[in-house]
């Protein structure tokens, strides 16, 4: 089995987690799945770079984070038009079953600066340790800690409002 096949097969069970991470980063359902598609395409194209002793999930999550950052940059430059139909298509697929509080939390997350959003997505949603997130983001652990604390305070304020 060559590395491409190994990556391809390894990614299949990771798809749900990858979609969850993408949802936390990109916010909206259609965007998140577009991001996942880009990530899969990149991962397959770069399969030769993956070392079997490295965890595939962290490798592909790093690709996801970088792809998301690339797109944010590209969008920022191009002043891409806001597609209004996405306004109603928020993060939560099961909005009808969700308390308003959770919708508000998803909105608050989407409004966080990218530095904060990615830390929340990796640590609080995906469940990475601070050290793993720091390694993926290539920043010191202390930076992860402080960004997470600030992001958390912001999100907490939104939860507290309804409590």
């Amino acid at each position: 089995m060559n590395s491409s096949d190994a990556v391809r097969e390894g990614l299949i069970p990771l798809l749900p987690r990858l979609r969850r991470l993408a949802r936390a980063l990109a916010g909206q359902v259609a965007d998140a799945d577009d991001l996942v598609q880009i990530v899969l395409e990149r991962a397959l194209a770069r399969a030769a770079q993956w070392r079997p002793d490295a965890a595939l999930d962290k490798w592909v999550f790093a690709i996801a984070r970088n792809a998301w950052r690339d797109e944010l940059r590209a969008r920022g430059r191009s002043q891409h038009l806001f597609a209004p139909e996405e306004a109603g298509e928020m993060t939560a697929d099961r909005a009808s079953a969700q308390p308003a509080q959770q919708l508000e939390l998803a909105m608050a997350l989407a409004a966080l600066p990218p530095d904060h959003r990615e830390v929340v997505a990796l640590v609080l949603v995906e469940g990475m340790s601070y050290g793993e997130a720091a390694e993926l983001l290539e920043v010191p652990v202390g930076t992860v800690t402080s960004r997470l604390a600030r992001a958390r305070a912001t999100l907490q304020a939104h939860l507290g409002k309804d409590a």
């Binding site: 259609a30 965007d31 577009d34 991001l35 806001f82 306004a87 909105m107 409004a111």
Partner: peptide
């Protein structure tokens, strides 16, 4: 493809929500 929206537009969509 539609792709995710830049900050200002995202803020707009949050406001709409």
């Amino acid at each position: 493809r539609r792709w995710f929206v830049p900050g200002a537009a995202l803020a707009a969509s949050v406001a709409l929500l």
